[in-house]
Design a protein around this nucleic acid. Structure first.
Length: 568
RNA sequence: UUGGACGUCGGCAAGCGGUAAGCCACCGGGUUUUGAUCCCGGCAUUCGCAGGUUCGAAUCCUGCCGUCCAAGCCA
């Protein structure tokens, strides 16, 4: 047994509490063959970054212990589930780098076995058909401080229960007329143990079993059995199921199950400036606050993918936030730090002007174009270099010029000299304005001796600007993304406010008049670049084409100039 | 006033009776043809609070305080 054989799952010191539990179980001889885990999503929505944490945990543990992790769909409620969701989940898990060719499991494949175990429970006097309606059941369940009361149908005979349950299965009752309940203890301190529902009637078509069934098992009844059937040793779930563990165990103990997995709970992931509940994410999509589940502003795996995040960055994030039982809120900038660090090493550099300001270099020959060489990645010589066309007319960033610059402004201003990256030093001679007084063009002169960006006389400049040739540059659409919400902790909304009241109106800014280096239009969709001095951008997976280039900002570069400005 | 779980730096998080790791953020300084990267330095005499046990406590005990979960025929 090689613990932590996968370097990606190694933590600096020690192992998380779940691996500690597993280690103890192995030492105590409680793990028969190998460690088996599972990732069991319900196909009722797209996976989000919180699921990624669980995926990395479960598959990561399986790798560490040389066991296996099964991707299993917990599809026990046909009214909420769809094939589209199972497809997207499979895609996302694979994209993250797990479950490449392995089998996919479905709880619905075990419906016959669940039914048989339900019969077994009835025969042992451990389950009964309750003919009360939902409201009556609710009212007799009691509260955390008041015990519940027994159903008048609680003492039906085994024969009667068997017959009634058979009729339920055969569709002889309407939805809500009756349910199958476990007979445990209506006075139990844990409300989950007060005769929980096992089967309810749902006359809905299931995405896999069609109309074969009209009764469907409840999570608590089914989940432990799903685990047992698959030989799971450690059933890892989130904290809200802690109260369900006694029930999980009860169902396994009262039936002839093949094994008894151990449920372990950990804290789910929360991120700043976003929401993570499937209900809300679904609402954002259906009510069109975002453009689909894979909108780059969404905290979904597909959203991050489209935003330009890589599988390895998400895996690393999952590993570095750790696993514990404390409810935590992780700063989104931690994720941003990780993708920045990765892209800094892997992304080719390029120049793109987001808000163009025309610069005419008066002393540069008209019609002349020369190719300047620029390295693709200053930190990686193997990344090679590319040729960038330079000419008399170029665009620079509007922000890179100020007519009346404050102190410490290292960029272009009247009479000031700057370096154009990979090209020449230029000096601003004249500012051209329109009738409203807006600066529309700069007339500059260049120093031919500074080709490549260095002055032979040792003259220094403080600022280096990115630029794009006006003649050779290409037009592109750039989508600038920011946090979806304005509140850092979405659990701390003001009284009476809805989460949608905190939607950030500037979460998406589309800029259609950007000018980019010509080579960029041929980028493959999904390819990432660092736009010099601005950030990391990736060619949009859906909308980018050479005819209509579209780039998404994955994350901005750190900007200490912005920080200085803020201070003043 | 029910049961369960959890409280270590602004955010994650190690620590498991021998004297507070690491990462992010933040603050200084250096290098730089990206105000990026990189490099160097700073950043919890204290572990929710109060007692107790011990030569020694974030770690053990007691009591308090705070937060989260639980009254679906959702998962």
């Amino acid at each position: 047994m090689s613990v932590n054989s996968n370097p990606e799952n190694e933590t600096k010191k020690g192992v998380d509490f779940i691996r500690q539990i597993i280690n103890e179980d192995i030492k105590a001889g409680k793990v028969p063959q190998c460690v088996q885990t599972r990732f069991p999503p319900e196909p009722n929505g797209y996976l989000h970054i919180g699921h990624a944490k669980s995926i990395c945990l479960n598959f990561g543990i399986a790798e560490d212990y040389e066991g296996t992790c099964k991707l299993r769909f917990d599809d026990t409620n046909p009214s909420k589930e769809e094939q589209e969701y199972v497809d997207s989940i499979v895609e996302d898990v694979r994209w993250l780098g797990f479950n490449q060719d392995e089998k996919i499991y479905f709880a619905s494949d075990y419906f016959d076995q669940f039914y048989a175990w339900a019969i077994e429970l009835i025969k042992n006097g451990k389950a009964y058909v309750d003919s009360q309606n939902a409201q009556q059941i609710r009212e007799t369940r009691g509260t955390p401080t008041v015990t519940g009361t027994d159903s008048p149908f609680r003492n039906r005979t085994v024969e009667e229960n068997l017959e009634l349950f058979e009729k339920m299965k055969n569709g002889e009752f309407e939805e809500g007329e009756c349910i199958l309940r476990a007979k445990i203890d209506m006075a139990h301190q844990n409300m989950n143990m007060r005769d929980p529902a096992m089967y309810r009637i749902r006359k809905a078509s299931h995405h896999r079993t069609g109309d074969k069934w009209c009764i469907y098992p409840m999570y608590d009844f089914a989940h432990g059995y799903e685990d047992a059937i698959e030989g799971i040793t450690h059933s890892i779930c989130t904290l809200e199921f802690e109260n369900h563990r006694p029930l999980y165990n009860w169902f396994l103990e009262n039936v002839s199950a093949p094994c008894h997995p151990r449920q372990v709970e950990f804290a789910r992931l929360n991120l700043t400036y976003t929401v993570m509940s499937k209900r809300r994410l679904l609402e954002l999509v259906t009510e069109k606050y975002v453009n689909g589940w894979d909108d780059p502003r969404m905290p979904t795996i597909s959203g991050f993918r489209r935003r330009g995040y890589t599988p390895s960055s998400i895996r690393r994030f999952a590993r570095e936030i750790g696993v514990a039982k404390v409810n935590s809120l992780v700063d989104i900038n931690f994720l941003q730090f990780i993708i920045r660090e990765e892209l800094n090493e892997t992304a080719d550099r390029a120049m793109a002007v987001l808000n163009p300001l025309k610069v005419v270099i008066s002393n540069y020959p008209e019609g002349q174009i020369e190719m300047m060489e620029g390295e693709n990645n200053p930190g990686d010589p193997d990344a090679g270099s590319r040729e960038i066309p330079f000419g008399r007319e170029i665009y620079i960033e509007q922000d890179d010029f100020m007519e009346e610059p404050p102190k410490k402004f290292f960029r272009l201003a009247p009479g000031k000299e700057v370096r154009l990256k990979h090209a020449y030093f230029i000096t601003c001679d004249e500012v051209v304005k329109d009738e409203k007084g807006n600066v529309i063009q700069l007339n500059c002169s260049y120093d031919p001796a500074t080709r490549g960006g260095d002055s032979p006389d040792g003259r220094k400049v403080k600022g280096t600007l990115h630029w794009v040739s006006a003649e050779k540059g290409k037009k592109a659409e750039v989508r600038l993304y920011d946090n979806l919400f304005t509140l850092e902790n979405m659990d701390e909304m003001e009284e009476g406010k809805d989460y949608k009241d905190y939607l950030n109106p500037e979460s998406l800014v589309i800029n259609t008049s950007c000018i980019v280096e010509p080579s960029l239009v041929d980028a493959a969709p999904g390819k990432s670049f660092q736009f010099l001095r601005q950030g990391y951008f990736s060619a949009d997976l859906k909308d980018h084409s050479p005819e209509h280039p579209v780039f998404n900002r994955t994350v901005a570069l750190k900007d200490s100039w912005a920080k200085i400005q803020k201070k003043n």
